Simulated assay, not measured.
Amino acid sequence: MRELGTALRSWAADGVGVVRVLERHGFGTVESGQLLAGTASGAVAGLLYRGALDVSARPLVAAAAAAPQTREAHVAEPDALAAGLACAGGATLLGHPLPAAQADALGAALEAGSPAALVSAADGAAALVLTGPDLSARTGGLGSAELDDAAARAAAGLLRRGATATERVPAGDVELLVDLWVPVPSVLVVGAGAIGEALAAQAGLLGWGVRSASTVDEATAAVADFSDADVLVLLDHAPAFDATLVAGLRGRGFIGALGSRRTQAARRERLLAAGVTEDELARLHGPVGLDLGARSPAETAVSIVAQVVAARSGRGGSALAGSEHRIGG
């Protein structure tokens, strides 16, 4: 996304078209926040579904620099599998212009790796870019203050999940398409041992950042600077690290702590005595992890990152077979 951000900034003054996924069916699990951008002259950056939609999407980018339009794209099973997707599928693509100010603002945020949202009406007639840690900076508009406020509320709600998302949101008589990009999660592991090593390996497999801290001061300072995308996994049971938890529970991000129920109960009493409220304490995931029956450090690491994924998506971590949610996000 940072390379895409650089491209957007370099093209902003010359006119930019973007292509986004308005609706899709099939393809299996795919990442949200898919975006293709380019110019009328044919320059293109970004990727939609591993390039499987290029035949339809790339010509649409050039056309979208001038006017909004939609296009249907279908990918057969062999082509989908060759691109690395799970199965065949189809998508309704929305292409629309991105004015210079919005292109520059979105590009700068993506280039810097900071949160950003692109919101438009479902017909692509206007675009609003929201940037900053809490998406409070607005560039462009959707035609009315009411729509801009509705878009900002929708994007802020998605941001609280801490994950990149693409959603269609009703706003009165209009439907908005919201693409939100957030930084890749960074896991702070406090404490040493086999579980910490397994967590680092599992986070690396997911493409997440990993760092460690061994002292209370170091850990507390890091947690105090957390964004919504950051994750604390406290492995050390020492009461001194209660200070780190207090900072985390009064701040942002996913706050998790390992330990038996007995350890958690004692920790809870200490935190309450330190002035932590019940509402703040409700943010503590302890014992951290989903109930997968994990026995080894590696399995425990899987249960922890699974809970992080579920929490970021607003899900409970139940079996897909018993869920009514859409499979794949």
Rank of each mutant, 00 (worst) to 15 (best):
Tyr49Cys: 08
Glu278Trp: 11
Ala201Leu: 14
Leu177Trp: 00
Cys87His: 12
Arg161Gly: 14
Asp14Leu: 09
Gly46Asp: 02
Leu188Ala: 05
Ala198His: 10
Arg252Thr: 12
Leu271Phe: 10
Leu48Phe: 08
Ala240Asp: 08
Ala145Gln: 10
Ser10Tyr: 01
Tyr49Arg: 06
Thr220Gly: 02
Arg71Ala: 10
Glu111Trp: 06
Gln307Tyr: 05
Thr70Trp: 02
Asp54Trp: 06
Gly289Tyr: 00
Asp228Glu: 15
Ala152Gly: 14
Ala45His: 09
Ala105Ser: 15
Ser313Ile: 05
Val276Asn: 04
Pro99Met: 07
Ala66Val: 11
Ser296Asn: 07
Ile304Glu: 03
Leu159Ala: 02
Glu175Trp: 00
Ser186Asn: 11
Gly248Pro: 04
Tyr49Asp: 06
Pro170Met: 15
Gly90Cys: 10
His25Asn: 13
Gly5Ser: 12
Ala121Arg: 00
Gly33Ala: 04
Ala266Glu: 04
Leu177Lys: 00
Ile304Thr: 03
Glu31Lys: 09
Gly90Tyr: 01
Ala311Asn: 15
His325Asp: 14
Leu130Arg: 02
Val308Tyr: 02
Arg270Glu: 02
Asp230Met: 05
Pro59Ala: 03
Ala40Val: 10
Val61Asn: 07
Leu142Asn: 05
Arg138Trp: 11
Leu272Lys: 11
Glu278Val: 12
Gly28Asn: 13
Ala192His: 15
Leu292Ile: 05
Thr39Phe: 07
Ala127Gly: 10
Arg161Glu: 12
Val305Cys: 09
Val19Ile: 11
His96Asn: 14
Ala137Glu: 15
Val190Gly: 05
Gly26Phe: 03
Gly209Glu: 15
Glu278Lys: 12
Arg312Met: 12
Gly15Leu: 08
His74Trp: 13
Arg153Phe: 06
Leu234Ser: 01
Ser120His: 03
Glu175Tyr: 05
Ser136Trp: 08
Leu130Ser: 03
Ala224Ile: 06
Leu188Glu: 08
Arg2Pro: 09
Glu175Asp: 15
Ser212Asn: 15
Leu176Asn: 05
Thr39Asn: 00
Thr131Pro: 00
Ala52Lys: 04
Ala117Lys: 01
Ala203Lys: 05
Ser303Met: 07
Ser318Phe: 08
Gly204Thr: 12
Trp11Asn: 00
Ala122Gln: 13
Gly259Met: 00
Gly5Glu: 01
His285Gly: 07
Ala105Phe: 10
Pro133Glu: 12
Gly314Arg: 01
Thr92Phe: 09
Ala321Met: 13
Ala126Arg: 00
Pro239Val: 06
Ala238Pro: 06
Ala155Gly: 12
Ser303Cys: 06
Thr92Pro: 09
Asp14Tyr: 08
Thr29Gly: 12
Leu60Trp: 04
Gly286Glu: 06
Ser260Ala: 09
Ala282His: 12
Glu3Thr: 15
Glu31Tyr: 07
Glu218Lys: 12
Arg71Phe: 05
Phe226His: 09
Ala91Ile: 06
Arg138Asn: 09
Val223Leu: 05
Ala192Ser: 13
Leu158Cys: 14
Gly328Arg: 01
Glu77Asp: 09
Gly316Ala: 15
Ala37Tyr: 07
Arg267Asn: 01
Ala163Met: 10
Gly256Trp: 02
Ala224Arg: 13
Gly193Met: 10
Leu128Met: 11
Asp134Val: 14
Ala154Arg: 08
Val276His: 02
Leu290Ala: 08
Ala80Lys: 04
Ala238Lys: 11
Ala100Cys: 14
Ala201Trp: 14
Gly51Ile: 13
Val169Asp: 02
Leu130Cys: 01
Val223Pro: 02
